[in-house]
């Protein structure tokens, strides 16, 4: 069985950033640390779990991103993916989700797959769009926000459970090939072992240079959120802050 996992590299959540004066770009300093989008770590782990159960399963990962996104692919290889494809676009952050879906749909058409696994959303851009777009382009069935996945290779079918909210779930059966976008918490992603990390350093990554990516024509303006409240910010020493918080709660009769 072939499983394709689409992963994205995202800046660490606490990374400082700057918004350009015209508001059109978000810049992260060169020392920013990046990681695999956490939803995609769950997707990759789900692929590895399936590969443990189903013999002869091949897992390929693919990403669209700048050169530095290679570290995300290396980590995916170290965790257990077999092949990695890197669509290199230095301006990946301005490539629209639809264009990404087109690129990845072309990839899927030229590589065998039974299941595509993706995350429910990217933590940085928060579109929650690419999975269903890709399924629509490939004309394959799909299901998102999946919290449970079972595959029957003999019948070529997938049984999945989507989360509507924490107390409401729906089951769905899809024939393969199909696309599954996972919700966070579906599993506990593993860490790579040291020996695998060393091996992954030498593994081949197929690089494809993207030329046709255009800037999306919808011009965004970025800004910081506005305060909705008069917040007392406590930035003193730990003890000062503790006393100030105590005073606040005391005057409000909350403590």
């Amino acid at each position: 069985m072939h499983i394709l996992v689409f992963i994205k590299q995202v800046p660490h959540g606490e990374s400082p950033f700057e918004i350009s004066k015209d508001g059109h770009t978000i810049q992260f300093p060169s020392n920013t640390s990046y990681a695999i989008n956490s939803y995609d770590e769950y997707a990759l782990e789900e692929a590895l779990i399936l590969a443990e159960i189903i013999p002869d399963t091949v897992i390929s990962v693919a990403t669209i991103g700048p050169k530095k996104a290679e570290t995300a692919l290396r980590r995916a290889l170290a965790i257990g993916a077999h092949h990695a494809y890197h669509y290199i676009a230095e301006n990946a952050s301005v490539v629209s989700t639809f264009e990404k879906a087109e690129i990845l749909a072309e990839h899927a058409k030229s590589h065998p797959f039974d299941i595509i696994l993706a995350g429910s959303m990217s933590e940085d851009s928060a579109h929650a769009a690419l999975g269903p777009m890709l399924a629509a382009l490939l004309d394959i069935p799909w299901a998102t926000h999946i919290m449970k996945l079972e595959v029957n290779p003999a019948e070529k079918s997938i049984r999945a459970q989507r989360e509507i909210d924490v107390s409401t779930r729906q089951s769905i059966t899809l024939p393969m090939p199909a696309l599954i976008a996972v919700q966070s918490g579906i599993n506990r992603p593993r860490y790579p072992s040291l020996s695998n990390t060393l091996r992954a350093k030498k593994q081949e990554i197929v690089e494809i240079l993207l030329h046709r990516t255009s800037q999306s024509n919808a011009k965004s303006r970025f800004h910081l959120p506005h305060r909705t409240k008069e917040t007392h910010m406590l930035t003193g020493s730990c003890e000062e802050n503790a006393r100030a918080l105590y005073e606040y709660l005391h005057t409000k009769s909350l403590l």
Partner: peptide, 20 residues
């Protein structure tokens, strides 16, 4: 979860943009 399952696919099928 249900809205996000279909809205992006509808945009693709109808040739519309998507803002989420």
């Amino acid at each position: 979860p249900l809205g996000c399952d279909i809205a992006p696919a509808l945009a693709v099928k109808r040739g519309m943009s998507f803002v989420s």
